[in-house]
Amino acid sequence: MFFNDLKQTRGKIYISNDWCKGCGFCVQFCPKGVLDTSPEYNAKGYHPPYVKNPDACHDCMFCQMICPEFSIYVIKEEATNKGETNK
């Protein structure tokens, strides 16, 4: 526990597998390398992403912004004193 009580903002990532068409943007552009391509197929026959490294998510929501199919979104998991304002 840090003496100045700073805590890292964390996000929880939700993926709507069947909406995904496997473009891989979210995997490619996540600045913390949280996501990876799943070996599974979705209903459309694409490989959707999966959350490989959930603890590394900083809740920047870039995956949500960049997804062309609206199939991924992030909900803030842990509020901190500051720094939690989303764009």
């Binding site: 840090f2 700073l6 890292q8 903002t9 900083h58 920047c60």
Partner: peptide, 16 residues
């Protein structure tokens, strides 16, 4: 506003 929190090496990781 910075969303990233890491251990502060100048405080020998006692603070972030």
């Amino acid at each position: 506003v910075c969303p990233v929190v890491v251990p502060n090496e100048y405080e020998l990781n006692l603070t972030a």
